[in-house]
Amino acid sequence: MNKLNNFFLQIFFYFLFFATLVAVHLAVIKALPYPFNKINFLIIFIIFILFVFGKRLAMFASLIIGLILDFYYFPSLGINTVSLLLTLLLTNFLLVNFLTDKSLYSFLALTSTAYFSFIASLHIFYYVVSLGGGLEANFVFNRYFFNSKIYGWLFSLIIATIIFYIFNYINKRYKPFFLIKGGR
């Protein structure tokens, strides 16, 4: 019984923590001036969890974060959650099969992959939903579109680097080491 209570308490605290992160993303990052408002803080965070704590917690994080994002965005069809889960699937595949260490470069490579795959999946889903009617696809592939994505990517990499060094400074767990083939 105690174990069960602890489990639910843990889930509740995770939920509160991830909800706070979404609040920071929606109300702080989005309120910043351009191009800082294009930083994808949540993607950096999910990749960071995948990198340090493994895919189980990362999957749980993307599920909760995606759900709360979907509660705030229109249409409510789980587009954010599904896109985040797909992104996580792809980055985890890269991490296990192609990256041999946990260096800054690996982290940045994963963040970049996740950033672009999330954008791609989000736009594809949004477009598919808009084909079904009842929603206008509100994007045009012009230079503003590509500029904003590039700026968002560059600033996200800067934030990822800062997070990497802060965590490296305070915790030995993030020191570079070789992945055990077939592990994770």
Binding site: A31, Y34, Y73, I79, L122, N138, Y144, F145, S148, K149
Partner: peptide
């Protein structure tokens, strides 16, 4: 409470 769309890409919020 927030601004910008899922797919917003412009300098000014829409």
């Amino acid at each position: 409470v927030s601004r910008g769309d899922l797919t917003d890409s412009n300098r000014i919020s829409e």
